[in-house]
Amino acid sequence: MSTTSTQPDRVGGKGGPDEPTVRELVERATHTYIARIQPRYLKDESTAVSELARLRRGAGKRAHEVQDLWGIGALENLSELLEGRTDFDRRKDAEEAVFLASTLWALHQQSRRDQNTHTRGKDLGGAVRALIRLKEPERADEEESTLRKRLVRVGTAESFQSVAVRLREIVMLLRTVPEPLPLDYARLAGQLYRWQDRSARAGVQREWGREFHLAARKKASAAEKGDAIDPTLGADDDGTYAGYAAGE
């Protein structure tokens, strides 16, 4: 896992303004893969059903831990996008992000044949806020919810393994409600890639917390468009990230 960032998050040798960042390629690889297999799963195609069953075995784990998933389509997409681009040193971080997001999506999609669980613009904080309203409708203070505390545990994790396990717990909860609570797994993959760079981690923590707080001001019937949060944002003046402190 990278702890410092000594190079710009761009690939290739030119580094021009129109060149995609690695984060953008991580998101593209994840979305392209899921967008290809998700409709096939909804149609109950046997190959797609089998692939999701394989993917679910990797949910919450690291890419190298499940040999049966080496070379999954999402990682092949990423490899193609990064082909010939060597001006960065975080290929492993990119692979881990794509792998985790893809396997979590497979877990979320399990047995859901009437809805897409990957939808662009549906962020993690907003999904947790919606989950609170569905599972704890009588709660007046959503800030004190145990479900919110689960999101805080993701934000304050110190290892990628902890992030993986805690995100898996949230996805499992998203599956327990009949109402669709999709996530933008491409966006999540990009956040997971950035999280592994300690110099960018505060921005991701801030982003997850901001998503949760912004969701409180959105009307329940409004279509969420996703929130463009500045990834360079650091901690608040009190040393917290949208209200919670860093650390295990």
Rank of each mutant, 00 (worst) to 15 (best):
A223Q: 08
S79V: 03
P180S: 03
R187F: 15
R112H: 15
Q161H: 09
K61W: 05
L183T: 04
T6F: 09
D197A: 15
W195E: 09
T232P: 00
Y33N: 08
Y244D: 15
E80Q: 12
G60F: 01
Y41E: 12
Q67E: 15
E142D: 12
Y193S: 08
T176I: 06
R112K: 13
E142M: 06
A59I: 00
E27Q: 14
T3Y: 10
H64L: 02
A48N: 14
R57V: 06
D227N: 11
S111Y: 01
T21Y: 01
D230V: 04
L75V: 08
T146D: 15
A164G: 10
E158Q: 13
G226Y: 07
L134R: 04
G71I: 07
R201S: 10
Q109L: 07
R198A: 12
L131W: 03
L173F: 11
T146F: 12
G125A: 07
P17D: 02
R10G: 00
D89Y: 02
D123F: 05
T32G: 04
E24T: 06
R54C: 06
V163Y: 07
E144R: 05
R139V: 13
S199T: 08
R175N: 15
D68Y: 01
D114T: 04
S111F: 05
A127Q: 10
A157Q: 04
P8G: 02
G243Y: 04
L69Q: 10
H213E: 15
T103H: 08
D18H: 04
P8E: 01
H64M: 06
P182W: 08
G247D: 13
S50N: 09
S111M: 02
R187L: 15
A186T: 04
E19I: 05
F160W: 11
T21K: 07
Q38I: 01
V204Q: 02
R90T: 15
R206I: 01
A127P: 13
Q191D: 15
K149N: 10
V66C: 12
G226S: 06
I37T: 13
G247A: 08
R198F: 13
H213F: 09
G121L: 04
R113N: 09
A35D: 12
P20D: 12
L107G: 11
M1G: 14
G13W: 03
D87K: 05
S199Q: 07
L75G: 10
V204E: 06
L69M: 05
T232Q: 11
V204L: 00
A164L: 05
